[in-house]
Design a protein around this nucleic acid. Structure first.
Length: 585
RNA sequence: GCCCCUGUAGCUCAAUGGACAGAGCGUCGGUCUUCUAAACCGCAGGCUGUGGGUUCGAAUCCCGCCAGGGGCGCCA
């Protein structure tokens, strides 16, 4: 928001360096820490070090930097854009003219509203593939991180100025589907799912999985698989019908989570084209056909002259049936051909890192120049205490519906207690927004590389640094604005000395666009979760120290604008994370 | 054997190669006749796993070691 001023000063410093025969280095700007006022800062250590190196001198860099900073400060004098400047221990701190900048920040935020925080367009088109559920199976907490992360990353890429295509890739074929259909025909023929479609589908699947341990059942399932392979009409029909039930169940979950997709891909749609890709790989001499003794493989290390780096990618089974890789190669190509993408992001857990590397490398060998614009966004999995991975086979899954149900129930009782006058329907609505926010935030507020351990106590603990705290800040903003009972006062120059809390809050608000840019660039919603919390904390501090409604004019009007801007910043931050900011709590 | 990730306060986690490593939880102690106490304030708590190196400057980059997790030809 202060690029102009920063650029002006940077230019002046650059000119000074030229005059003094100092090296031409780009300056790195940061916010000034430990300050009740706000501004930007840069240091001269690099410049001092580079200068010494250039002159071949051995010097005390810290002392030189200090001196440089002081000289630059003298040279700059009193820039009109800034209230004051100081040289401290090798740093140059430029303090904004508080009143003027505060007004500018507030004006900008209030004018942009729900667009505040968004960055200018990059003109890039990015596809993000995430969620990738298997039909005929349950949707559990282990799958949740992917959806929440993928959705937030889409929001952030979008806010970062990219055109985003949200893609889902449905695992609608494979042994798990056949097992499910066998069990359905054997033990549940004619049944139809009720309201809880996913639970019902998942139950039939885990039952099938249990029964499958019996060799006799395994034999029967194999027979059914053969019928499926022959594309027998009644089996294909059953598959279509039951797959649809799963899709409807997924849609319930996505609706609940408020996550949407632009494009659904199905494994079944890329199976045949995948086999054609494999044929092309063989023809080009990239893949080796070891059938019938072996499979069709791409010996990546041999081709690339590397050792134990890319290993071997199996692209087709020895019996000619497809593998995940068969289909992923085809899908990767289809994505680019269909959308003319600049980038293609895969949100898939970290265990598939090697596999992803192999797929991208194989696409590169096939001659696709966009292969290096494919990215694997790896995240760690959600485990149960004791580092137990959730598995439907072992019955160790926590169903998503159960988590949400429990979290909502618990939140509802708090809402009823805090806000007894609210209509029950609204209480329910608020409880759900808060419960979902808490669940999402807990997944987004740690780095993608960190394992999440799920336990009920932690998952349902909404105290401290958690979404409800942030939502509460937005609610308090609302409450003040509602009680003010006036239209938002017009922008006006400040003619009172702001409190530290006010300056700090406005400072935090002004940082949001930068944080969005960083989070979008690095695909790290964590930066926004942290910043949203900082904002809420900044507001709480303001709330406690700066009366709004009881303040005298012109302070009252100005503070109302601060509150309105804070509300926008907090709500937008949450929105980027896929979290709602309720009006009341 | 090769590769990837992680190691920071009692616990869970932050920290653009930069100023004094910060939050939350937990412990203890204070704040409601006040815009919603789902809040605020305060105390205590650290050789950033370990040994080297690079750098003016390292939790951050490089190398070794230790500990934990994950991956490595026909699962997805």
């Amino acid at each position: 928001m202060f690029e102009q001023e920063q650029e002006t000063i940077a230019q002046q410093i650059k000119e000074y360096c030229l005059e003094q025969g100092l090296p031409d280095l780009p300056l790195r700007w940061k916010w000034i820490p430990f300050s009740a006022h706000w501004g930007i800062s840069t240091s001269f250590f690099q410049l001092a070090a580079a200068d010494a190196k250039q002159k071949g001198q051995k010097v005390n860099v810290a002392a030189c930097a200090r001196e440089l900073a002081e000289q630059v400060a003298v040279h700059l004098g009193q820039p009109v854009e800034f209230e004051r400047l100081e040289a401290v221990r090798g740093y140059l701190n430029l303090y904004f003219s508080t009143a003027e900048y505060a007004q500018r920040v507030l004006d900008t935020v209030l004018e942009q509203g729900s667009d505040f925080g968004r960055n200018p367009s990059t003109g890039e088109k990015v596809m993000v593939e995430f969620s990738q559920p298997n039909t005929h199976k349950a949707f559990h907490v282990g799958h949740l991180r992917n959806v929440i992360l993928g959705d937030a990353v889409c929001n952030l890429l979008d806010a970062g100025g990219n055109e985003v295509v949200r893609a889902n890739y449905i695992g609608d074929i494979g042994l798990h589907v056949i097992k499910w259909m066998w069990n359905y025909l054997e033990n549940h023929d004619g049944e139809i799912p009720g309201e809880e479609k996913i639970r019902w589908m998942g139950d039939i699947y885990s039952e099938a999985d249990r029964l499958y341990q019996d060799p006799l059942v395994e034999e029967k399932v194999r027979t059914l698989f053969a019928r499926w392979d022959r594309k027998e009409q009644d089996i294909v029909d059953l598959w279509k019908t039951t797959r649809q039930w799963s899709m409807e169940g997924f849609q319930q979950i996505y609706d609940l989570l408020n996550v949407r997709f632009d494009r659904f891909y199905y494994e079944s749609d890329v199976e045949e084209s995948g086999k054609e890709i494999v044929a092309a790989l063989i023809e080009k001499g990239i893949a080796v056909d070891e059938r019938p003794e072996g499979a069709v493989i791409v010996p990546l290390d041999d081709i690339l002259g590397t050792e134990e780096v890319y290993r071997v990618l199996v692209v087709l089974r020895s019996d000619g049936t497809s593998l995940y890789a068969t289909k992923d190669l085809s899908l990767g190509i289809q994505k680019f051909e269909e959308y003319g993408l600049d980038r293609s992001v895969y949100v898939i857990d970290v265990r598939q890192s090697l596999y992803m590397k192999q797929i991208f490398k194989t696409l590169e060998l096939l001659g696709y120049d966009w292969a290096d614009r494919c990215e694997h966004l790896a995240y760690e999995i959600v485990n149960l205490p004791g580092n137990v991975t959730m598995s439907s086979r072992d019955g160790t899954v926590v169903l998503l519906e159960d988590l949400i149900k429990e979290a909502t129930a618990r939140t509802l009782s708090i809402v009823q207690q805090k806000n007894p006058d609210l209509a029950p329907a609204q209480q329910q609505q608020v409880a759900q927004a808060v419960a979902l926010g808490a669940i999402k935030y807990s997944m987004l507020s740690r780095d993608n590389t960190k394992v999440v351990t799920f336990d009920w106590e932690t998952a349902l603990d909404f105290n401290g640094q958690a979404a409800p705290y942030i939502q509460y800040a937005a609610v308090r903003c609302n409450s003040i604005l509602r009680k003010a009972d006036v239209n938002l006062p017009a922008s006006a120059p400040l003619d009172y000395e702001m409190q530290e809390a006010e300056v700090h809050l406005i400072d935090l608000i002004s940082r949001l666009p930068g944080e969005v840019a960083r989070a979008s660039r690095e695909l790290k919603p964590l930066y926004i979760s942290t910043h949203a919390y900082e904002l809420a904390k900044g507001f709480s501090n303001f709330y406690n120290t700066c009366p709004v409604l009881k303040a005298e004019e012109p302070i009252r009007s100005h503070r109302l604008r601060i509150v309105a801007a804070a509300r926008v910043a907090v709500a937008n931050s949450l929105a980027f994370l896929g979290i709602q900011a309720p009006d009341v709590m």
